[in-house]
């Protein structure tokens, strides 16, 4: 755990993931409770009422929540494989966020502040996970000669 907090990109990614869980959790809650999300952009209800707000029987908000939980889980998987898992999940979330933002702007014609917030969080998470994966590892200690 102390190693996690000493590692800056991982710390940033963990905090961002918790923010993402908060946003997606809230949207999932209002979806299942049939409530209107608190909205300052005026487009949340239209986005929520859109057919794009569900994929099959699964609300997009719940998919997001599952995605963020998987990211959180992967942050605790040690080694390069764990970092690659985080990278894969955040890349998926980032690419899907681009698609959802496109739908908001050009198809549904409404902007939901929560969706934009989640898209921003996912973009930052993708950057943080790429840094974690790509930054040069410490040089290996020379083997005794």
């Amino acid at each position: 755990m102390s190693r996690l907090w000493a590692d800056r990109p991982t710390t940033v990614a963990t905090i961002l993931t918790l923010v993402g869980i908060g946003i997606a959790g809230y949207l999932t809650y209002v979806h299942y409770e049939g409530l209107s999300p608190v909205c300052t952009t005026g487009g949340c209800e239209r986005v929520q009422a859109s057919s794009y707000s569900e994929i099959g029987p699964i609300p997009v908000a719940l998919l997001g929540l599952i995605g963020y939980v998987l990211i959180l889980f992967s942050l605790f998987v040690p080694g390069e494989l764990g970092r690659a898992m985080t990278f894969m999940f955040t890349l998926t979330g980032f690419a899907f966020s681009i698609y959802l933002t496109y739908l908001e702007l050009f198809v549904i014609d409404a902007i939901c502040q929560w969706c934009v917030g989640s898209a921003v969080v996912m973009t930052l998470l993708f950057i943080a996970s790429a840094v974690r994966l790509l930054r040069p590892a410490a040089p290996a200690r020379p083997a005794p000669g």
């Binding site: 390069e80 494989l81 690659a84 898992m85 990278f87 894969m88 890349l91 998926t92 690419a95 994966l133 790509l134």
Partner: peptide, 9 residues
């Protein structure tokens, strides 16, 4: 790993 992750994503 990056290639695999990109493909899977």
């Amino acid at each position: 790993l990056i290639g695999g992750a990109v493909l899977l994503a």
